[in-house]
């Protein structure tokens, strides 16, 4: 139907508004959601006119134009990790965290797919699975959060977000500093494609579904970074004979030095350095030092022990970049 082009002849000016009994009370417009008016919402427009007919005020209503708001399909996916997720070689079920948001105006099931095999990274995790943060606490809970399956995609309300966890196993062959990229894609179950694509009759409330600006699909990547450390142990000995020289004769004192050098971006737990006392020598009591500090032979608060056949120094957790020097002495029999 074409617009009527005739210009009305009447000048329009401000004037005190008339009291109109026929005005229906209209509710104040509600605040719009970010996603917009909910799909299926009717928009009805009716105007009212009044005029005077020889002293009688007459009111007339216009016809009512009815429109229905269609469903917009918009999905957003963002990594929710603050940075690379540190993992160790061989670690199982390492967790990457994502946020999936329904930016549309109707409830929409979201299909989730993962790509752990990004070509440009250093390694690929194995056995990657998707879990939904069922209790919505932002933390993966074994036995509580539910495994995602294609048959039961989560349905997100308009403007709603969920947390999605990817669990992957880190290959034991990975080395310190290696990274792996894992991509999560979320797609509106109704469909996706070029913005503006219409899925007739498939919108919420029986209307159409229209692909929004996101294309109704989105992806983002999370990253694993292997944090590992290696320990190099080197041993050296110096000999002091009873005459102030370095000959190995009975009575000479041998000072053994164990240098434990930890390298890498990670740390090593439960490090214990042990060394047996060589034959034909006798341990010099209380001679253990750790980084030039003396340790007692008994098992007590300090890190050193001597059990009669060898020494042990418990270093515990050692971070990469640490060098520990352990010394002890024996006398040649």
């Amino acid at each position: 139907m074409s617009l009527r082009r005739r210009t009305h002849l009447h000048s329009v000016a401000l004037r005190a508004p008339l009291l109109l009994a026929a005005l229906s009370p209209a509710s104040l417009a509600s605040q719009a959601q970010a996603a917009g008016t909910l799909a299926g919402t009717p928009i009805e427009n009716t105007a009212t006119a009044s005029y005077d007919d020889g002293g009688t005020t007459i009111t007339v209503d216009s016809n009512t134009v009815s429109l229905i708001v269609d469903e917009i399909l918009d999905i957003a996916v963002t990594s929710a990790d603050p940075g690379d997720v540190p993992v160790r070689p061989g670690e199982l079920d390492s967790v990457l965290k994502f946020t999936v948001t329904n930016g549309g105006n109707g409830p929409e099931p979201v299909l989730l797919t993962i790509d752990p095999n990004i070509a440009s990274d250093d390694f690929d995790p194995a056995a990657v699975t998707i879990f939904i943060d069922t209790d919505d606490n932002g933390v993966y809970d074994v036995g509580t959060d539910t495994l995602y399956t294609l048959a039961t995609p989560p349905t997100l309300d308009p403007d709603a977000s969920i947390t999605v966890f990817l669990l992957g196993d880190i290959p034991a062959t990975t080395a310190d500093g290696e990274r792996s990229e894992v991509e999560l894609t979320g797609t509106a179950a109704t469909g996706s494609g070029t913005p503006g694509t219409v899925f007739a009759g498939q919108g919420e409330g029986g209307g159409d579904a229209v692909v929004g600006s996101t294309g109704a699909t989105a992806n983002d990547s999370g990253f694993y970074a292997v944090v590992d450390a290696t320990l190099d142990l080197t041993k050296s000995a110096t000999v002091l004979d009873p005459f102030g020289g370095a000959t190995q004769v009975p009575g000479s004192v041998i000072t053994y030095r164990l240098t434990a050098e930890t390298t890498g971006s990670g740390s090593i737990d439960n490090v214990v350095i042990t060394d047996a006392i060589p034959g034909a020598t006798t341990y010099v009591d209380e001679s253990i030092t750790l980084d030039s500090t003396g340790l007692t032979d008994t098992a007590d608060a300090d890190a050193g022990t001597f059990d009669g056949s060898g020494i042990a120094v418990t270093l515990g957790t050692v971070a990469g970049g640490t060098t520990n020097i352990i010394e002890f002495q024996v006398v040649i029999d």
Partner: peptide, 27 residues
């Protein structure tokens, strides 16, 4: 939104006032 009025009667209509409530879903 286009509101079209037409006086189809034989006499002038005075004090003509048109009011359109905004549909709730329209800003």
């Amino acid at each position: 939104f286009v509101l079209t009025y037409q006086n189809t009667g034989a006499e002038a209509a005075e004090n003509f006032v048109v009011t359109n409530p905004m549909p709730e879903a329209v800003v």
